[in-house]
Design a binder for these strands. Structure first.
Length: 269
DNA sequence: GTCCCGAGAT
DNA sequence: ATCTCGGGAC
């Protein structure tokens, strides 16, 4: 399907570029599976410059996967402060527990097993397998997809991109190649001026926004009655019904709870 | 990015 | 039964 393309020329130019512009990041060249996993999960939602300090802070708080597995969810959510997308911190802790129960505390080495862990999909499973265990598989993110679509001459689906990316892997250099592709895709290929206009307004009224704010407040207190929670969110107006319903949904997802049938809200135990 | 769900295809 | 693909949510 992609045999008409000049693989070697493409490989060479990308690797040459990487040889010159490669960035050295805290987790690069560090094969510790937990470190790789943490960095990749953080990178899923946040830019590199914001991840770096958070990465060190989180690791100082939870040095090993085992520490994370046995830590109270509330502590993990607190250590995640400023990262956004709290659900990922939750998945990360659950993945740590799953690894403890199912693999004796050591992350599995295969893409298939890694992908069964909560919060780990096609991208992260491949990233961990490759960067931590040297498995020769391609890692595909949106930048790589855009880059390879350009190489192929048409818009590729995620599946097609994966096929082509695996086909392009230089033997024995999967890790370098993947880093090179992602770096190139994000640093060079992207020439689009960011949408600096408008759409910022709507978010401030969304459920997603308020759910985040609720968890923010909860991080600062061991327990809060509904009245106090409402008081801590003055901008929300006195819309108790809405806040209560948001807390319920947070509860269903394991991000908050009502202390034994009362109206006192807390972070999960 | 990952998850979840519905829908069409194998 | 298993897989691929939008669509929306976080």
């Amino acid at each position: 399907m992609f045999d008409h393309l000049d693989h070697d020329a493409f490989r060479t130019s990308i690797l040459d570029w990487y040889g010159v512009y490669r960035r050295d990041l805290p987790w690069r060249g560090d094969p510790d599976p937990y470190h790789v996993l943490l960095s990749e999960v953080m990178l899923q939602q946040t830019q590199v410059h914001r991840v770096i300090p958070a990465y060190h802070r989180f690791l100082a708080r939870f040095p090993t996967l085992g520490d994370l597995a046995s830590a109270p969810t509330a502590d993990v959510l607190r250590a995640w402060a400023g990262m956004g997308y709290n659900r990922r911190a939750l998945y990360l802790k659950r993945a740590a527990q799953a690894v403890r129960e199912g693999y004796g505390g050591s992350l599995p080495r295969s893409v298939e097993e890694l992908e069964r862990l909560p919060g780990i999909g096609r991208y992260t499973s491949r990233a961990v397998a490759c960067f931590a265990f040297g498995v020769q598989v391609a890692v595909v993110d949106t930048n790589v997809r855009r880059l390879l679509s350009g190489f192929a001459g048409r818009q590729l689906t995620e599946k097609e991109t994966e096929t082509l990316a695996d086909l392009l892997l230089p033997s024995g250099r999967a890790a370098d190649w993947n880093q090179a592709l992602m770096d190139y895709g994000s640093l060079v290929e992207r020439a689009r001026p960011q949408r600096s206009t408008v759409p910022r307004q709507r978010f401030a009224e969304s459920d997603r926004f308020w759910r985040g704010r609720i968890v923010d407040v909860l991080r600062l207190h061991d327990a809060l009655s509904m009245p106090l929670l409402l008081a801590a969110l003055p901008e929300a107006g006195r819309d108790e019904a809405r806040i209560r319903s948001l807390v319920r949904s947070l509860h269903e997802e394991g991000l908050a709870e009502f202390a034994e049938g009362t109206d006192t809200v807390t972070l999960p135990t």
